[in-house]
């Protein structure tokens, strides 16, 4: 569904993508794993066209996202849903109006139909009955579920998840994982998940891509990733503080640095 070829991007001297090439298959869950600062969120923003890459191409359903006009991009996004890290619900709207927002903007449906559609989506995420609450009255895990209901209200073909389980307690994270799996297995929604939560990733992914400072260091099924012998991959999965990925950000020797005064 999405093919990325030779993508390059950097913020000043810090590269977030170095010749990244990969693809995301239809009806599959692909998880992009990486530590903070590995460039995974930037990559996600570039796939949906929220941010421009320096060079390279990103093809979505045969169209190059990097070359689309603003109007074509907005048209394309009607087939996409996105769950933001902080849910990005509108503070001034209640839950019902938040989820109804895309429908009211793009479809001319009667309020009765909108009400029914919202009940269906809220039932899917298990939050029926919260329609009249404000986002500030819900817990972090619940706002994520509302964000997900809003992301899928237009029945998108593909849903992007930016750190869906970060900052959640294990049970809420489990709920989100179940919802991602349900959407994919039952409705065939293609899913792209950006995460640093290894356990969740290996549980839900059909394919895992590990990103390290803008470079892809491993691609494969969860089994292949678990059995990998690449020391960088092993360090990432076991979470050891030092290894091929150094603990210290400075490449200068500590003693030499001290002696310099």
């Amino acid at each position: 569904m999405i093919t990325i070829t030779n993508l390059n991007h950097s913020y000043g001297k810090i590269a977030t993508a170095k010749n990244v090439s990969c693809n995301f298959e239809t009806n599959k869950i692909t998880v992009i794993l990486g530590g903070s600062g590995s460039g995974k969120s930037t990559l996600l923003k570039q796939i949906v066209g929220l941010q421009k890459a320096d060079s390279g191409s990103i093809e979505f359903n045969g169209q190059d996202v990097t070359r689309l006009s603003k109007r074509a991009l907005y048209e394309m996004r009607k087939e996409m849903g996105m769950l933001f890290q902080g849910s990005a619900l509108f503070n001034s709207f209640n839950i019902f109006d938040n989820i109804a927002f895309p429908l009211r903007q793009h479809r001319s449906l009667s309020e009765k139909v909108i009400k029914t559609l919202i009940k269906i989506k809220l039932e899917m995420v298990g939050l029926r009955g919260t329609e009249l609450l404000m986002p500030s009255q819900l817990s972090g895990g619940m706002t994520k579920r509302v964000g997900l209901a809003r992301a899928i209200i237009m029945d998108p073909k593909i849903v992007f998840y930016d750190e869906p389980t970060s900052g959640l307690d294990p049970i809420s994270a489990g709920v989100i994982n179940k919802l991602i799996l349900d959407l994919n297995r039952k409705l065939g929604v293609t899913s792209v998940v950006v995460s640093h939560d290894i356990e969740s990733a290996l549980l839900i992914a059909d394919k895992v891509i590990i990103l390290f400072y803008g470079e892809i260091i491993a691609t494969g099924t969860p089994e292949e990733i678990r059995e990998s012998t690449d020391p960088k991959v092993i360090q990432f999965i076991t979470g050891s503080p030092d290894g091929p990925i150094p603990f210290s950000v400075s490449d200068k020797k500590f003693i030499a640095d001290l002696m310099e005064g």
Partner: peptide, 14 residues
């Protein structure tokens, strides 16, 4: 900060 502006863009609204 809270990604509401990018969220609008993702919903196809400028």
């Amino acid at each position: 900060i809270t990604d509401q502006l990018p969220a609008l863009e993702m919903m196809g609204i400028d």
